[in-house]
Nucleic acid binder design. Structure first.
Lengths: 240, 240
DNA sequence: CGATGCATTGATATCGGTCAAAGATGGTGG
DNA sequence: CCACCATCTTTGACCGATATCAATGCATCG
């Protein structure tokens, strides 16, 4: 419902030029015509926290854009474990499919506002408008980079390191700052973090405690971290 | 130098419709005009096994397409560990960049034939040709799916399970078959596998031995696996 | 004020990492 | 053709980190 979301519901946040590369930090918004075209085929949806958006295996008729809030993309495994593939934030695109079926499931983490775009119509639109398609190409490239980033995190074997990398990842999203250091929002539960990091819930808890014990961060509350010693923290993130 | 590679150097293998979805298994090749345009800006390169293609951090001026052979995409970490992000096969696109720099490094695994496309010119071409761009969009979406797949593998904690999933992944690429069961080519070294699976070299070795001991597979030689009991094997792949 | 879900903390067992050594393999040159 | 070397791979022993099981603590919301 926010004016911002209504005015620029489908602006595409590009980290520079698109495709397999990018060269800047610019934010490029769609032209008014493009915005209008997307709005004509898109549907606005609001959801409360922890509501299903789509399920793995369902027919993939829609592509989604987050206008506001946080979404998680995950997969329920036969062992009972749940693997969280990604957290999606404002302006992120999601709805990856294969053979006409969604590959993963998606749920809201916080209250969210989404735009749903019917796939077939979107495809038509993209073929007609090369610039618009270029924006989407950029978005997917961004998703790919994010995916690589997660894989890098999973490559680490130590829980503390994974947790530190996760906080660093989230820091790139919600960069609030006050006197004592950057404050990072962690809207999801520990369980979600554990499923994203492929750790047990307990390991996440212990790693958090350990980071705090070492004086690198503090947790003002369960959903926020303050990074205290940025240098040491960054060192921990880089290692391995 | 193979005629196949020359005739269809940049055909794009699509698993159906592009973008975030796909609905079939069709292979769509480029029109002769598109092929010609790409050939005009592209350069053909042949490499022997284990040769560098580009390094992480270098200016990302080119996008690559594998015509023949296998390429690995990796990252050298400060700890000395090497993380292999992906193995690229015929028709795969690679050269992911951020801020004008390559995100990873790339090397040939086997002898390879590549096509290098200058990024700027390719971007121009794509903006002009919506269909061609659509193909590239599809390719990147495919890369994204592959990346998710690897993340799923890394989510598993047991070495045997990871190894089984890896073999299953490779089976999707090289599906040879003979009387006793599907034969899967593993062109890369154990070290490469270990770096892809985020395991130690020894763990890969042990996991392979264990799979063989259980009668699920045999290794005719180091670079081939035969899947013996497909059902049991698939069960192992699915679990967790 | 209980109740329910979420989170922390503790104890133990297991699996893979690390170190070390020996065993294949393939290519090279005599 | 064979011997030799470098590289890759296998196997073994030990240790540490994390999963797992279990119990307790702490919110938020009726």
């Amino acid at each position: 419902m926010s004016p911002t979301a209504q005015n620029r519901p489908l602006s595409v946040h590009l980290r520079g030029l698109p495709f397999l590369t990018s060269v800047g930090q610019d934010e490029i918004t769609l032209s008014s015509g493009q915005r209008e075209a997307l709005l004509q085929i898109g549907l606005r949806t609001c959801l409360r926290p922890n509501r299903p958006i789509y399920s793995s295996g369902a027919p993939a008729d829609w592509v989604f854009v987050v206008a506001e809030g946080v979404v998680k993309c995950f997969r329920d495994l036969s062992s009972g474990r749940r693997a969280v593939c990604a957290f999606l934030f404002a302006r992120d695109l999601f709805g990856l499919a294969e053979n006409g079926r969604y590959l993963n499931s998606a749920r809201s983490v916080t209250a969210v506002t989404l735009y749903r775009l019917p796939l077939q119509q979107l495809a038509e639109l993209l073929k007609q408008d090369g610039q618009l398609q270029f924006h989407f190409l950029s978005k997917i490239t961004h998703e790919l980079r994010e995916s690589h980033r997660r894989a890098l995190i999973l490559g680490r074997r130590d829980a503390i390191g994974r947790m530190a990398m996760f906080i660093a990842l989230m820091a790139g999203r919600s960069g609030a700052h006050d006197g004592r250091g950057p404050i990072v929002a962690l809207p999801m539960t520990r369980t979600d973090m554990a499923d994203f990091l492929s750790l047990s819930l307990e390991a996440v808890s212990r790693a958090s405690a350990e980071l705090e014990r070492r004086g690198l961060v503090t947790f003002p509350d369960r959903h926020h971290v303050r990074i205290l010693r940025s240098a040491s923290f960054a060192g921990l993130v880089r290692a391995t």
